[in-house]
Simulated scan of single mutants.
Amino acid sequence: MVDETIEQAKAALRIRAHAARAALDHQERAEAARAAAKHFFDGIALRPSDVVAAYWRIRDELDCQPILVRLMDSNQTVVLPVVLGPEAPLDLRVWEQGASLYEAGFGTLAPAELAPKAEPDIVIMPLLGFDSQGTRLGYGGGYYDRTLARMKKKPRLVGLAFAAQELEHIPRDAHDVPLDTIVTEAGVRHFGAAA
């Protein structure tokens, strides 16, 4: 059951967080993406066997491409999400070295339909906002919530955002899974058991 009071509060926070993100200029965005990638690799322990779910940036999200390039160059297994429908979980497809990416809805790119699928050990998640408790404010579609609920294992959840997207407090609904870590251009913060 969705708490309408929480949903209304989140809707107002989404407007505020999106405005903060949209206010950043092109140069700030590029520098932040490079800095966040450095912090990611300095602050997140990766095993060679780890499957990493990432994303292809849409709109004004923090660009994950510097992380994706380095993961692919080091032969880490990378999966990218595909939206199959409004109530379906994300389809996580392996992006194999040299494979083309295709339009996958919402302006994002992903591997072809016949690409292998894999369940990730680490999920790098885009977001609109985050708070000091590791609460992630997404777009409200529930895609990541549904996807995480169906996984056989619990992956480490790493939010990727601009520092300007931090909010004082985000109310959490029962289905909201908190982040283990947030990575911004300002550094890495671990929450809960990962702290």
Rank of each mutant, 00 (worst) to 15 (best):
P171I: 04
L24N: 08
L68Y: 05
A195E: 08
Q8Y: 01
A30D: 10
L128C: 15
Y55V: 06
L167G: 04
A194W: 03
P66L: 05
L101Q: 08
G187S: 08
D3A: 03
G43N: 10
R21D: 08
E103I: 00
G142M: 14
A35W: 00
L90V: 00
D145M: 02
T184S: 11
E7H: 12
V83N: 00
Y102P: 00
A22T: 12
L157W: 01
L109F: 08
H18R: 15
A30I: 04
A194Y: 02
F130W: 13
I67G: 05
A118E: 03
A9S: 13
L46N: 08
Q27F: 06
V123I: 15
R136T: 09
L167H: 02
I124Y: 08
A118P: 02
K154C: 10
V2W: 04
P86V: 04
E103T: 05
D145G: 01
A22G: 03
H169Q: 14
G159K: 07
G85A: 00
L90E: 00
P116H: 09
A32S: 14
D91A: 06
G142C: 14
H26N: 04
V78T: 01
I122L: 12
P171Y: 04
E113W: 00
D50P: 05
R150N: 12
F130D: 13
